[in-house]
């Protein structure tokens, strides 16, 4: 399997603060990878180091086989978290400019820029100045600017922020299109549902460390499965079923009749339902669902995220 990106024991310190602490991972070529983590986890710093905008304090990074992104920068596309355009330049002008910085010829770049704007519904605004575009439009322009040169490796930092639901879907399409073309895509986001829908691989970062690296299924497995029930009766009998790990009141519903029953991977939830019947426990509701990525996120970094927010 071809490897698009390798980080080997990478650290970055700002003074005494360790923004990124001994991070190692590999991303195979041709996948979509979600880069998740609470605010202040070190995602943007890591991305900047991958792009050689910042240099790591320690460790090494290999991008598309090169020891520095600078050597292969024409094959990389980047959409930063802080997005901006030259206010006085036209949409087509700015996309052309970024394309020429990536080594494209001006005339080719201009044609490609127009085609892309047309394709993503901005054809009428191609010659408008960027200051006249809405936020959603200018974000699209930026995304187009980061992919106009058909990069093999694309890094998108918070591509969904600031977009309405329709445009968020368009953005998901864009990312899938890149993947279809054979590009490797890494994107960071706070919105787990996007990652859940389009990622094959997830990296979860907190406090400068990678705390999870694997598929979505792997991620779900990091937290116990749960069954939610509602009853006024005692649930003592259910806890004796083999494979039940424990029970707790869901957050914020301590006084109600709701229970969260944690079960291991081997237990069929139907067993639990049968046991309730057998023991005469009258259930008002019974719900079994796979944990979402959101649950995984809160489970893995919940406290860290709160601390980070408060900082």
């Amino acid at each position: 399997m071809e490897i698009a990106l390798t980080l080997d024991s990478v650290s970055k310190n700002f003074g005494d603060f360790k923004a990124v602490d001994d991070v190692s991972f590999e991303i195979p070529a041709g996948i979509i990878c979600g880069f998740l983590g609470p605010n202040g986890a070190g995602k943007t710093t890591t991305i900047r180091m991958i792009l050689e905008i910042l240099r790591p304090s320690a460790g090494s990074i290999t991008v598309l086989g090169a020891p520095s992104a600078l050597e292969v920068r024409d094959r990389i596309g980047y959409l930063p978290e802080e997005k901006g355009l030259y206010k006085k330049m036209t949409a087509v002008g700015i996309i052309t400019y970024f394309a020429t910085l990536k080594g494209m010829r001006t005339s080719t770049a201009r044609k490609k820029a127009r085609a892309l704007l047309e394709q993503y519904g901005l054809g009428d605004f191609a010659d408008s100045k960027c200051e006249a575009l809405s936020k959603g439009m200018s974000q699209k322009v930026q995304v187009l600017a980061s992919m106009v040169h058909d990069p093999e490796f694309v890094i998108l930092d918070e591509p969904f922020s600031g977009l309405d639901p329709v445009n968020q879907q368009v953005m998901e399409e864009v990312i899938r299109d890149m993947r279809k073309r054979g590009a490797t895509v890494i994107f960071s986001t706070h919105v787990m549902s996007h990652a859940e829908r389009i990622c094959e691989r997830i990296l979860l970062m907190a406090k400068g460390k990678i705390i999870f690296d694997g598929s979505i299924a792997d991620a779900r497995r990091t937290i116990p499965r749960r069954v939610l029930i509602s009853t006024d009766a005692s649930i003592e009998a259910l806890l004796g079923v083999e494979g039940v790990l424990g029970s707790r009141r869901p957050d914020g519903e301590e006084d109600s009749g709701s229970w969260e029953i944690l079960i291991d991977d081997d237990l069929d939830p139907q067993e639990l339902l049968r046991s309730a019947f057998d023991n005469g426990i009258a259930l008002e509701s019974f719900q079994h669902s796979e944990p979402t990525l959101h649950d995984v996120f809160v489970h893995l970094v919940g406290d860290d995220a709160k601390i980070a927010e408060a900082r």
Binding site: R48, L51, I53, A69, R73, I76, G77, Y78, L79, P80, E82, K83, G84, L85, Y86, K87, F98, L101, K102, Q142, A145, S146
Partner: peptide, 11 residues
């Protein structure tokens, strides 16, 4: 201030 800088720096 318009945050164009970072895109530029990837190129």
């Amino acid at each position: 201030s318009s945050r164009v800088m970072e895109v530029l720096l990837s190129s």
